Simulated scan of single mutants.
Amino acid sequence: MSSVTSLLLPLATTAAEEEGGSNFLVPNATFLIELLAFGIILAILGKFVIPPINRAMTARQDAIRKQFNDLESAKSDAEKAEHEFKAQIADARHEAARIREEAREQGAAIVAEMREQAQAEASRIVEHAQAQIAAERQQAVATLRAEVGSLATTLAGRIVGESLEDDDRSNRVVDRFLADLETLETSQTAGQSGAQ
């Protein structure tokens, strides 16, 4: 631009000197040259400078619009992902609560089953112990009968002064003695329960 002005300026000064001065109201050659240079500069700017600037500005505006659109879509995607995450957390909490409840129910069922097994085992042990006690009692009664019978026979023989070696007789005496003993024991326990 300055090169065009520097080329045209000497021409304008020589034309002004030839005419004999410059008249402000009437355009002279300098004014016309400056007007011509301004038009050329405007044409050059309009043809070569302004279109690339406009293209760059349009491209920049398009890029900004695209970034805004991308930002909006990213924001909506983030909100969607957040909602999905919250839904998954809620589902996981419900699932954990369900699993805890199932575990609690299974634990209660196991405890009840173990309690039943323990009660059954305890009942079996008690029945076995009662059967064993009954058997031992029968054995003790049989042993006691034999020993008491022999002692009673010997003692009665000494008191009476004759031998009571007859087995049938001694067995009857022993049985009667033990029956009397059981009757006495039964009446004493009935008397104690009535007194309480």
Score class of each variant (00 low, 15 high):
residue 160 V to E: 09
residue 51 P to H: 14
residue 63 A to R: 14
residue 85 F to Y: 09
residue 101 E to C: 05
residue 94 H to L: 07
residue 97 A to F: 12
residue 136 E to C: 13
residue 59 A to Q: 04
residue 151 L to A: 09
residue 64 I to D: 12
residue 104 R to N: 09
residue 120 A to S: 13
residue 62 D to I: 11
residue 110 I to R: 02
residue 51 P to Y: 04
residue 85 F to S: 11
residue 70 D to E: 13
residue 129 A to H: 13
residue 55 R to P: 06
residue 52 P to H: 12
residue 123 S to D: 09
residue 150 S to M: 13
residue 99 I to G: 01
residue 65 R to S: 13
residue 90 A to W: 02
residue 118 A to N: 02
residue 98 R to I: 15
residue 153 T to W: 00
residue 96 A to T: 06
residue 133 I to C: 08
residue 165 E to T: 04
residue 52 P to A: 03
residue 146 A to Y: 15
residue 98 R to A: 06
residue 131 A to S: 15
residue 112 A to S: 03
residue 50 I to F: 01
residue 137 R to L: 07
residue 107 G to L: 00
residue 105 E to T: 10
residue 142 A to S: 09
residue 150 S to Y: 07
residue 149 G to L: 00
residue 142 A to Q: 14
residue 50 I to H: 02
residue 60 R to W: 14
residue 103 A to V: 11
residue 74 A to N: 15
residue 64 I to S: 04
residue 166 D to A: 05
residue 72 E to Y: 07
residue 70 D to Q: 08
residue 117 Q to K: 00
residue 166 D to W: 03
residue 145 R to C: 05
residue 150 S to A: 14
residue 73 S to G: 04
residue 108 A to T: 08
residue 132 Q to R: 07
residue 53 I to S: 03
residue 63 A to K: 07
residue 105 E to V: 06
residue 102 E to T: 00
residue 62 D to A: 03
residue 83 H to A: 09
residue 87 A to Y: 04
residue 50 I to P: 01
residue 142 A to P: 01
residue 97 A to M: 13
residue 152 A to F: 03
residue 66 K to P: 11
residue 104 R to Q: 14
residue 112 A to F: 00
residue 122 A to C: 01
residue 105 E to S: 05
residue 74 A to C: 13
residue 52 P to R: 14
residue 127 E to H: 07
residue 129 A to S: 06
residue 77 D to K: 09
residue 61 Q to F: 04
residue 80 K to W: 09
residue 69 N to A: 10
residue 128 H to K: 15
residue 155 L to P: 01
residue 118 A to C: 02
residue 90 A to D: 13
residue 86 K to W: 14
residue 102 E to I: 00
residue 139 Q to N: 09
residue 104 R to I: 10
residue 65 R to H: 06
residue 97 A to S: 11
residue 129 A to V: 09
residue 85 F to G: 06
residue 59 A to N: 04
residue 124 R to K: 11
residue 151 L to D: 13
residue 121 E to L: 14
residue 128 H to A: 07
residue 57 M to S: 04
residue 160 V to Q: 14
residue 153 T to Q: 01
residue 110 I to F: 01
residue 96 A to G: 11
residue 67 Q to T: 05
residue 167 D to Y: 06
residue 54 N to H: 08
residue 137 R to K: 10
residue 134 A to P: 03
residue 121 E to G: 10
residue 87 A to T: 13
residue 122 A to P: 02
